[in-house]
């Protein structure tokens, strides 16, 4: 079986700064794979490099067995799509939802735009009432649903999710995560999801990779997290941090 996504030795530099330093990972078709790390760990850079939004210095990326070069053709974008972190920055401020969704269809020459737009809005739970709104007339959760609809409208097989819920309230996050899970089930999609939140990744993904300073710390299964079987001390620290504040940390600090 060819991997949905196969990355080896990926290096990305911005003006001499190595954002990614030799990262390799393999994602199987239909799998949901998580990337966890703190700011500056390079987790989002992996997604941007795959999408062609970051300058790749060396290393290789293959999507469904096909190596991706410097230039990506239109067919690539029909296989891979991305949902961005900030729902307030990822929708064009001067376009209606209708225009946003029609654009990818126009670029790829679909003829049944009308019915596809309505279907996409239905699928993300918005309905046609939202079709002619501008993004400033939408809440954060609704915007993210529009962004998901836009990513899905070309019927990709791989979805790159860059912290899709970190800008949302907890209750809205639950709705969006449920939606993403349902879509993956229905469409048999492959997810590569980035988050700083271990709990979100543990909830959404089967396997994950912990990153730090542009490098992979370790790869493990979500089950290992639940049973606290993390090998690397950094992962252990992340696990402890995700449990929330514990007062005995304070007593330890005041004793010191």
């Amino acid at each position: 079986m060819t991997a949905a996504l196969d990355i080896t030795g990926l290096v990305v530099s911005y003006d001499g700064f190595r954002a990614l330093d030799g990262v390799s990972l393999t994602v199987q078709p239909g799998e949901s794979f998580g990337l966890v790390g703190e700011s500056g760990s390079g987790k989002s850079t992996v997604l941007r490099a795959i999408a062609g939004l970051a300058p790749v210095e060396s290393g290789s990326i293959a999507v469904e067995g096909i190596p991706i070069g410097k230039r990506r053709d239109k067919a690539f974008y029909r296989r891979v799509q991305m949902v961005f972190q900030d729902p307030y920055g990822s929708l064009h401020p001067r376009q209606t939802v209708d225009r946003l969704l029609a654009e990818p269809l126009a670029i790829h020459g679909f003829s049944d735009a009308e019915s596809r737009i309505l279907r996409a809005l239905d699928e993300v739970g918005l309905g046609s009432g939202f079709r002619f709104r501008y993004s400033h007339q939408l809440s954060g959760g609704q915007r993210q649903r529009v962004a998901i609809a836009r990513a899905l409208i070309l019927e990709p097989s791989i979805l790159l999710l860059d912290e899709p819920t970190s800008a949302l309230d907890a209750s809205v996050q639950a709705e969006v995560l449920n939606l993403l899970e349902k879509i993956r089930r229905d469409r048999k999609l492959t997810y590569l999801m980035v988050s700083h939140d271990l709990a979100v990744i543990a909830h959404m993904c089967g396997r994950l990779m912990v990153m730090r300073g542009g490098q992979a710390v370790e790869s493990l299964a979500a089950k290992d997290l639940a049973s606290r079987r993390a090998g690397d001390p950094y992962t252990q620290r992340l696990l402890v941090a995700s449990e929330g504040f514990v007062r005995n940390a304070e007593t330890a600090a005041s004793e010191a």
Binding site: A51, F84, D86, G89
Partner: peptide, 26 residues
């Protein structure tokens, strides 16, 4: 470099299309 222009690039839009239809109106 905003996300919404990146999103259009990810649709496979050509540079001219991005300039004419997404940047100029702004």
């Amino acid at each position: 470099n905003s996300d919404y222009i990146s999103a259009v690039r990810l649709m496979g839009a050509s540079p001219w299309r991005i300039i004419l239809r997404h940047i100029m109106p702004l």
